[in-house]
Design a binder for these strands. Structure first.
Lengths: 296, 296
DNA sequence: CCGGTCCATACGCTCAGAGATATCACATCC
DNA sequence: GGATGTGATATCTCTGAGCGTATGGACCGG
C-alpha cells in the first residue's frame, strides 16, 4: 500500500468525462466551467504519464490507457462511498457485529426474547451469541473477545453491570420424591438430601448464593455430583441421583421425572445482569443495553 | 457513483495509523510531524461523522466504525496503485489487448512467426486474432473493431499501410495436368484453362492483380468457380476442376493431387501490408508495427 | 511530587490546486 | 466565408489543506 499519487476529485472528473465524452457537458454535470475540467484531466494525465482521452475531430474518446483506468476509477469511487456509508452505519449503531456471551441458564428464558427484540430494533446488526459460563465471560470481555455478557450474580470492579431481570429460585427434585408432594418447599426440608450443582468455578456468585441460602436455612448441602450444564443437572435429578436448587427459568427445561417447586423464602432471588467494558465506545453495545433495559 | 467526500491523503494516513496505532510513529512513517497527523485524522473523523480511533490510557485502538473503514481504505489504496500501474503499462505498450485481423492466406505463412515474435517482445499484450478477408478488415478497422489488419494489396485513403512482405505468385494446378511437367510456367500457357479464384469482393486488390497479370499475358481467365478460402481453392484444383494463381505462401497447403509451379515473369509479386488507423494513438499498435517492420 | 510519554490544541505560514473569465485554435456546416 | 461548437491556453484570484513550532493537559511510573 503506497502513498496515493492521484486525487479523488480528479478521478471523479475522469469518470464523469468518460461517461459524457464531452468536456462541456461533463463540466456542467460537475458544476464547474469547462476550462477547469480540461485542467483537471490534463493534471491526471500528467500523473498517469499517458493521455487518457483522444481529443479528435470526431469528438472525445477514451484511449487504451483510459479504458484500463476507467473501471478502476469506478470501483474505487463506489467502494469508497459504500465503505463510508458502512462505517457510518456502524458508527451510529445501525450495523455491525455484536458478540454476546450468555449463561446457559438463559438460553431458554430471556435470551430468545432479547435477540428478537434487538433484531427488530437494529436489523443491520449481526448478533453472534456464545454460550459461556460467568467467569469465562468476564475474562472474554476484558480481553475484547466479547462485547457484552449476560451473567448471573457477577461482580467486577473493572466492568460495568446492569440488572436485567430478577428471578426467584426453584427446587429441582425427582417427580417421585416425597417432598414433591409440597406445592412450595422450605429450604430446610432439603437438609440431608444429596445435591447436584454446577462447579463453583463456572459461576461463583450464583454458587455461593445457593450455598449461602442453604446455610441460612441451617444446613450445608452435600454435593454428590457436579454438572456444568443445567440441562445435565436436571437430567441427573430426573435419574434420581439427588436434588438441586436453580433459578426459576430453568423450569422451562421439561424433562420426564423432574419436578420444580418454588422455594419458600420467596425473597431469595438471583439477578441476571448485562456486563460490558465501561470504556467501550462501540455504539452497538449501548444500543444493546437500551434493548435490554428499555426503562433506563 | 457519487462525488467523493474524503481525500486520499487522509485515507492513507488513516491506514498507516491503523497499522501503527501510535500517532508519533505513524507520523514519522508518513514523514510529517505528529500534530498534522492528529489534524488529518480529526478531519477524516469529522467527515465520517464518528470517531475512528479510541484514544485511551491504554493507547490508540480502532473503534468499530474504524474497523469497518480500514479494509475499505486498504482495498481502495491498493486498487488505485494497481490500476495506475496497469494504465501505465497499457500506456507504454507493455500490456493490453490488440485485435489483429489477418487474411486467410497468411495463417500458415507469416502470421505464426509474427505472433511469436511479438509475444516475445511484449509478453503482457493479449493478442486477439481474427481471420477476415481484406474488405471486412478495412471496415472493421474504421469501425474500431480491429486495431491492426494484415491484408494483401489493399489501398484506402483513410487508413495507413506499411508493406510487410512481398511474395511471388505460383500457379496451382492438378498434379496430373500436362502443364505440371514444367518447372516454371509462363502465364500465357494458362490461357483457356478453367480458373478457380476467390470472389472479387473478398479482396479486390489481389483479385484485380491476378486478372491484370493474365491480361498482360494476353488472355482473360475464365473463372468457373469461386471459393473464399484458399484451402478450398486448392482442394477444388486437386479435384481437377481447374487451375488457379495464388501467392507463393499458399504452397504451404499440401494437398494430394495439387502441384505448385512458380510463375515465369518472376517480377510479378503481391504485397502483404499492415493496416491501421492513422489517428490511433494506441501504443500497442505502434509496438506491433515495430514488431512487423523491424527495419523501420 | 516530578519527569516522561503521548495526544490535542492553538497559531501562523505557505503554496498547490481549483476556480472563473477571456481568448485562441480548429474543426464543421450552411 | 462567416456562424457555430468544441477544446486548449493564458491569466488571475483565492481558498484551504497541510505543515511546522510551541504549548497544554492527561496519564503513568518512579
Amino acid at each position: 500500500m503506497d502513498r496515493p499519487e492521484l486525487s479523488l476529485p480528479q478521478l471523479y472528473a475522469f469518470a464523469v468525462l468518460a461517461e459524457e465524452l464531452h468536456f462541456g457537458r461533463a463540466a456542467a454535470r460537475l458544476g464547474i466551467a469547462q476550462p477547469p475540467l480540461s485542467q483537471q484531466i490534463r493534471r491526471l494525465e500528467t500523473t498517469v504519464g499517458y493521455p487518457l482521452f483522444a481529443r479528435g475531430a470526431a469528438g472525445v474518446a477514451l484511449t487504451a490507457a483510459g479504458a484500463e483506468l476507467l473501471p478502476v476509477a469506478r470501483r474505487v469511487l463506489a467502494d469508497l462511498s459504500d465503505g463510508l456509508a458502512a462505517a457510518r452505519a456502524v458508527g451510529d449503531g445501525r450495523a455491525g457485529r455484536l458478540r454476546i456471551g450468555f449463561a446457559a441458564s438463559l438460553a431458554a428464558t430471556i435470551l430468545p426474547d432479547l435477540l428478537r427484540r434487538h433484531r427488530e430494533r437494529r436489523p443491520g446488526v449481526r448478533l453472534e451469541i456464545r454460550e459461556m459460563t460467568t467467569v469465562p465471560q468476564l475474562a472474554a470481555l476484558r480481553a475484547g473477545e466479547l462485547d457484552v455478557g449476560l451473567v448471573r450474580e457477577a461482580e467486577a470492579a473493572d466492568l460495568a453491570f446492569a440488572t436485567v431481570a430478577v428471578e426467584p429460585f426453584v427446587v429441582v427434585l425427582p417427580a417421585g420424591h416425597p417432598l414433591a408432594a409440597h406445592r412450595r418447599l422450605r429450604l430446610d426440608l432439603l437438609a440431608g438430601e444429596p445435591f447436584i450443582l454446577f462447579p463453583r468455578d463456572a459461576g461463583p456468585g450464583l454458587h455461593d448464593q445457593i450455598i449461602g441460602a442453604c446455610a441460612a436455612a441451617g444446613f450445608a448441602p452435600g454435593i454428590i455430583q457436579y454438572a456444568t450444564e443445567w440441562q445435565t443437572v436436571c437430567a441427573l435429578v430426573g435419574a434420581g441421583l439427588g436434588v438441586s436448587i436453580a433459578p426459576a427459568g430453568i423450569g422451562r427445561i421439561r424433562l420426564p421425572g423432574v419436578a420444580y417447586r418454588p422455594v419458600e423464602p420467596g425473597d431469595l432471588r438471583t439477578r441476571v445482569a448485562v456486563a460490558w467494558r465501561p470504556d467501550d465506545s462501540n455504539p452497538l453495545v449501548s444500543e444493546f443495553r437500551r434493548t435490554v433495559l428499555p426503562a433506563g
